[in-house]
């Protein structure tokens, strides 16, 4: 499987602030990868480097085997969509769609119009009259209809209401299945996009913290439910990532590194072991301090 994006020892800093420190990863062709991480960790900067909008400070960045900054090939075969995506304010949505038809070689105009109709966007309206939510929806429609070999969505659902978000994800998935391409999708709402993703690229602390399938992310941790003293017979306190108290029981999040014997022993003691969602695993991986928000209120 061809590698579309190759990032080797990439460092990015602005004056004294370091965003990335020797970042390393590759993205393969025709996959849907979620780029996740806490606020301000640099997801947008990374995606802009991939799109060729921002250049790396050092290291080697290759998209379609070329350096993306100022590359005509990369620009022609990719599209960067976020909620802003500047368009001339005086043009109508129809005008913009016609420009897209000219620029994007795999553009499906019919699909774009049908999506516009579905989301109640009137093509003759000017860009400047759109509300934030409608603007995000319009940009998202362009992102899907462009069918660019590399499609990058940076928090595309900002401003969209819950119903529109669901429809957008569904539309994206359907078109991705019918017309495979490489998609990068960043979002705060990991729980909302879990089902969509194949792989996950988790950025934390200026580096890649996790890069594997979403299934692997889920299986990194376990939930252990039961009486705390009973559980501590089998595991040590250091293994506990997070604790949640519910009445007489606690729900502990631990790393999935327990032996089968330990697991069996716990089951015998009536301790419940269950898998966790990818979102919870993401939270567990990126927690800064031990414990949770409840501790603030103790």
């Amino acid at each position: 499987m061809m590698t579309i994006i190759e990032c080797k020892n990439v460092t990015k800093s602005y004056r004294s602030k370091t965003i990335f420190n020797e970042l390393n990863f590759t993205i393969k062709e025709n996959s849907l990868t979620g780029i996740i991480g806490r606020n301000g960790v640099g997801k947008t900067t990374l995606m802009k480097m991939i799109a060729g909008f921002v250049q790396e400070s050092s290291g080697s960045f290759e998209v379609f085997s070329e350096r993306p900054f100022n590359s005509l090939k990369v620009s022609s075969n990719s599209i960067f969509v976020d909620d802003l995506m500047p368009f001339p304010q005086s043009m109508t949505m129809n005008d913009i769609l016609n420009e897209c038809r000219r620029f994007y070689f795999r553009w499906d105009h019919d699909l774009a119009l049908r999506l516009m109709n579905y989301f109640s966007l009137h093509p003759q309206l000017k860009i400047r009259v759109l509300s934030k939510g409608k603007r995000s929806t319009f940009n998202a429609i362009i992102g899907i209809s462009s069918r660019s070999p590399l499609t990058i969505f940076d928090e595309p659902t900002t401003g969209m209401d819950a119903v529109v978000r669901k429809d957008f994800y569904r539309a994206l998935l359907k078109d991705y299945i019918a017309h495979p391409r490489t998609i990068l999708l960043s979002s705060h709402h990991v729980e909302e996009i879990e089902h969509l993703l194949e792989d996950v690229l988790l950025i934390d602390n200026h580096k890649v913290l996790f890069h594997d399938s979403i299934t692997a992310l889920q299986e990194t941790f376990l939930h252990i439910t039961g009486k705390e003293q009973l559980i501590l017979k089998h595991i040590s306190r250091e293994d506990i990532i997070a604790t949640k108290e519910t009445g007489p029981y606690v729900i502990l999040t631990v790393k999935n590194q327990l032996t089968d014997d330990t697991l069996e022993a716990m089951r015998k003691d009536n301790i419940r072991i269950s898998p966790i969602s990818a979102n919870e695993a993401y939270v567990a991986l990126t927690q800064r301090t031990k414990g949770g928000i409840d501790d603030v209120f103790k």
């Binding site: 062709e29 025709n30 379609f64 005509l72 090939k73 022609s76 075969n77 420009e99 000219r102 620029f103 070689f105 070999p149 495979p180 391409r181």
Partner: peptide, 18 residues
Amino acid sequence: MYLNEPRQLDILKQQLRF
């Protein structure tokens, strides 16, 4: 997957129209 290999001239014309 088929990738587009655009010529500078074509993109220039498209940008000018835009």
